[in-house]
C-alpha cells in the first residue's frame, strides 16, 4: 500500500522510523479496537526482540492480534494449532525420502515463518512445547544432525487459555521465562464493542490492511530501541523494584537478573513506542505487569493471587527515585 511504498524510498533516519512506527500503531488500532496500551505493549515486545505470550479466554482477539501484527509489520506468518497429539516434527518439519533423487530432503515445518502463532500452546504435550520453546531460544532447529537457521526477524506469539485445566499442560516457570511479555487482552468496553458489532468484519479488514513496515525497517527500529537513553535514577528505580520482589514476604520467588534485563529491554522499547525522550518510570510501570507477572510467584500466604494484583502491589510500594 501507499505507506509501505513510500517507506521503501525513504532513508531510515530516526524521524522516519518514528513516523513508520506511529503508522503501524494506527493500523493495528484500526483492527483491534480499544486496546491501545496492549498494542503498544505487543509492539514493544517485538521491538525488544522478545516473544509474546497472550493469555486469555477464547474469542477476545488473540489470533487477530497476532495476525495483524504479522500483516502490519510485513512479516511472513504461520499458525500452529497446538493439540495433545501434536508431534515435534509437525512443528519443526521432517526429512522426507525423495525417490527420484534418492536423497532425504528436509521439509520445513510451520516454525520457519518470521512470525509464528502458536495457538493454545498449553494443549500440546511438553515434548511438543519444548520443541517450540527451544527453537524460540536458539533461533535455529536441528533435524537429523543438520542445523537450520530460523528467519530473522523471528517472533513467536503464543496463546493459551487459562480457564481450561483438564487435559492441558501448563507451561512451567522456566519455559514462561522464555517469553518477554505475557499479555491479557480482556473484554472490550461498551463503545468499542458496539463499533466492533456494527463495523466491517475484522478478518475482511485485516485482508485490506497492507504492510506498514518491512524487515529492514523493523531491524532499524530494534537497533534504535537498544539506544534509548536510561538515566541513573531510572536504573535506581528498576533495581528498587527488583529488590522489592526479592525481599517482599508476599512474593516467593522474585525477579531474576534475566527478569531485570527483560524489564530494562521492555521499558526501553515501550519508551520508544511512546516517543519518550528517555525511559520514564511510566514505561517501567506500563510493562511491569506483562514482563514480571509471569516471572513472579506469590507466597502461599499472600493475599495477591493473580499476576496483575501482585504487580500492582509491587508498583504501589516502591518509591520512584
Amino acid at each position: 500500500m501507499q505507506q509501505g511504498n513510500t517507506l521503501e524510498k525513504l532513508p531510515l533516519s530516526g524521524d522516519k522510523l518514528k513516523v513508520a512506527l506511529v503508522a503501524a500503531r494506527q493500523s493495528l488500532g484500526n483492527i483491534i479496537l480499544g486496546k491501545n496500551s496492549e498494542i503498544a505493549l505487543a509492539l514493544a515486545c517485538l521491538l525488544a526482540r522478545g516473544h509474546l505470550l497472550i493469555e486469555d479466554l477464547p474469542g477476545l482477539g488473540k489470533t487477530i492480534l497476532a495476525q495483524s501484527l504479522a500483516r502490519v509489520l510485513g512479516l511472513s506468518f504461520q499458525r500452529i494449532q497446538f493439540t495433545s497429539d501434536l508431534l515435534p516434527a509437525d512443528i519443526v518439519g521432517v526429512s522426507i525420502f525423495r525417490q527420484e533423487s534418492g536423497e532425504f530432503e528436509f521439509q520445513r515445518g510451520p516454525i520457519f515463518a518470521e512470525l509464528v502463532l502458536a495457538d493454545e500452546v498449553n494443549r500440546a504435550t511438553p515434548k511438543a512445547q519444548s520443541a517450540l520453546l527451544e527453537a524460540m531460544e536458539e533461533r535455529q532447529v536441528s533435524v537429523d544432525g543438520q542445523t537450520h537457521s530460523l528467519p530473522s526477524p523471528y517472533f513467536v506469539v503464543a496463546t493459551q487459555n487459562p480457564s481450561d485445566q483438564i487435559g492441558t499442560f501448563p507451561l512451567p516457570e522456566s519455559q514462561l521465562d522464555r517469553f518477554l511479555m505475557r499479555l491479557e487482552l480482556g473484554y472490550p468496553n461498551e463503545e468499542n464493542e458496539r463499533a466492533l458489532l456494527t463495523g466491517t468484519d475484522r478478518r475482511q479488514l485485516l485482508a485490506e490492511v497492507g504492510p506498514v513496515l518491512n524487515p529492514e525497517v523493523l531491524a532499524a527500529l530494534q537497533d534504535a530501541v537498544a539506544k534509548v537513553h536510561m538515566t541513573d535514577p531510572l536504573i535506581d528505580y528498576i533495581q528498587a523494584l527488583v529488590r522489592f520482589t526479592r525481599e517482599s514476604p508476599d512474593i516467593e520467588t522474585g525477579l531474576s537478573p534475566r527478569g531485570a534485563l527483560a524489564l530494562v529491554a521492555a521499558a526501553r522499547a515501550h519508551a520508544y513506542v511512546e516517543s519518550h525522550s528517555g525511559v520514564f518510570p511510566d514505561d517501567v510501570q506500563a510493562v511491569f505487569a506483562s514482563v514480571a507477572g509471569h516471572r513472579l510467584k506469590p507466597a502461599s500466604s499472600s493475599a495477591y493471587r493473580t499476576p496483575a494484583e501482585l504487580s500492582r502491589y509491587v508498583l504501589d510500594n516502591v518509591h520512584i527515585p
Binding site: T231, D232, P233, F280, P281, D282, Q285, L315, D316, N317, V318, H319, I320, P321
Partner: peptide, 27 residues
C-alpha cells in the same frame, strides 16, 4: 541531579496534592 527532584517536590507541594508511593509523574 537531585536539584531536579527538589524542583519537582516543590511543584507537588505547591499543587497541594501529594504524590502516592509509586505514582509516576504522568499518573
Amino acid at each position: 541531579k537531585d536539584e531536579i527532584a527538589r524542583l519537582y517536590r516543590k511543584f507537588t507541594v505547591a499543587a497541594g496534592v501529594d504524590p502516592a508511593i509509586g505514582e509516576t509523574p504522568l499518573s
